[in-house]
Nucleic acid binder design. Structure first.
Lengths: 190, 190
DNA sequence: ATTTCCATGTAATGAGTTACATGATTGC
DNA sequence: GCAATCATGTAACTCATTACATGGAAAT
C-alpha cells in the first residue's frame, strides 16, 4: 500500500505528451504547484522504476539547448492502465500539519506583535496565490479553452480560489482579534 | 534547520500541565487533530531527546489504571524558552499535496461516476469535520471560557470553520459541474 | 475467554528534501 | 568572465507511519 503518488503524477502528465524528468518537474511547477509538488530526487528514481516495469518507455533522446542528453519518456498501454486504476480508488485524506495554527494555538506564550506578523505574512502568501490563480485561469481559458482537459483543470483551480477567499477572510478576522487581545493585555498590565 | 515541529508541539502541550507520552498523544488527538498529528513513534524518541537536553524533566512516575508505569514530564525553564523562541520564528508554509485534486486534474481519464463518488466522499468528510468543530466550540466556550488560552484556541478553530465552509461550497459546485460533464459526454457518444 | 484501554518503547519501512557531482550553452 | 538555464542522476539525511514486543487491569 504505497502512499506516495509520484508515480501516478508522472503517468498523468505523460498523457499530455512525452516528457523528460526535467520537463516533468517544470510542468508540475507551472500547472499543479497549487496542490502538488515533486523534487528531482523523487522523479528520476520513479522514472527508472516505471521504465523497468514497462509503464513508460523511452520516446527519444536528443540534445537541444543544454549540455546533457534529454531523455523523453512516453506512456505505454500498461502505464495508462495503472493510471486509470488509480483514478478509481478513493483519495487518501492529507495528514494535517499547519505550523501557523500550531503557533497561534500556543499564542498566549508569544507577544501579540509577533503573532500579528505571522498572520500578515500568511495573508501576503494568500494574496500572491490569488494573483497567480487569476493568471492561470486566463491562460487556461485563452490557450486551452477547447482542450478536453480544461474543465477538469478549472475544477481544481476553483478549489484553490474558494479556499483562498475564505482564508483571506479568516486573516482579516484574526488580525482584528489579535489586536483586541493585544490592547486587552496592555490594559490589564497598566 | 529541523523542519519537524514535534518537539515544539510537545513543549506547547506541557505548558498546560505535566503529561506522559501516552497522554500527549491522546490530548493532541482531542484538541488539535484539526491541524496537527503525532504518532507514538515520534513522541517517545522526542521525549527522550528533550529530557537529555534539559527541556523537560520527569515530574512523577505512577501506576494508575493499566499495567506499565506512567512517566509524566514537566516543562523546565529552558524548555519554555525554546517554545518562546520558536513562536517568534515565521511559520513554514506546508508543502502542498492533495490527492483528490490530482485525481480531478487527470479526471478526463476516469469515468464520471467515479469522480462524483470521490467528491461525495470528500463532502462527507467535510460535514463530519463541521459537526466536530461545533462540538469543540461548545466545549471551549462552556468549559474553558475563562482560560487565557481560549481566545487563541478559537482563532485556530475559526480557521477550520471558514475553510470547511468554502470547501463545502466547492463540493456542491464540483458535483454540478461533474454531472454536466457526464451528460455532455453521454450526448456526444449517442 | 476476549476485547479494549492503559502504557512505553524499538525496528522496519517509506517518503521526501537538499546537496552534490557533472557538464554544455546562452545571455549579460 | 559569470550567472542562469538545461539536464540526469546519486547519496545523505530527515521525517513520519506502522508494526511489533511486552504486559497488566477492567469490562463484556
Amino acid at each position: 500500500m504505497s502512499s506516495s503518488r509520484t508515480i501516478q503524477a508522472i503517468l498523468g502528465f505523460l498523457t499530455w505528451h512525452p516528457m523528460s524528468g526535467y520537463e516533468l518537474r517544470r510542468t508540475i511547477g507551472e500547472s499543479v504547484a497549487n496542490f502538488w509538488s515533486e523534487s528531482f530526487g523523487q522523479i528520476y528514481p520513479a522514472l527508472r522504476k516505471l521504465a523497468d516495469e514497462g509503464r513508460i518507455e523511452v520516446d527519444e533522446i536528443d540534445r537541444e539547448g543544454g549540455g546533457r542528453d534529454r531523455i523523453r519518456y512516453r506512456l505505454t498501454g500498461a502505464g495508462h492502465e495503472v493510471l486509470r486504476r488509480w483514478l478509481t480508488e478513493p483519495a487518501q485524506p492529507p495528514r494535517p500539519r499547519n505550523e501557523l495554527l500550531l503557533k497561534l494555538f500556543f499564542g498566549r506564550h508569544a507577544d501579540a506583535g509577533v503573532l500579528e506578523e505571522h498572520v500578515l505574512a500568511f495573508r501576503r502568501r494568500i494574496e500572491t496565490d490569488r494573483a497567480r490563480y487569476a493568471e492561470v485561469r486566463q491562460r487556461i481559458e485563452r490557450d486551452h479553452g477547447d482542450s478536453p482537459d480544461a474543465d477538469y483543470w478549472l475544477l481544481t483551480l476553483r478549489y484553490g480560489e474558494l479556499e483562498r477567499e475564505s482564508l483571506l477572510g479568516w486573516s482579516e478576522e484574526a488580525l482584528v482579534r489579535l489586536r483586541e487581545l493585544a490592547s486587552g493585555a496592555a490594559k490589564e498590565e497598566s
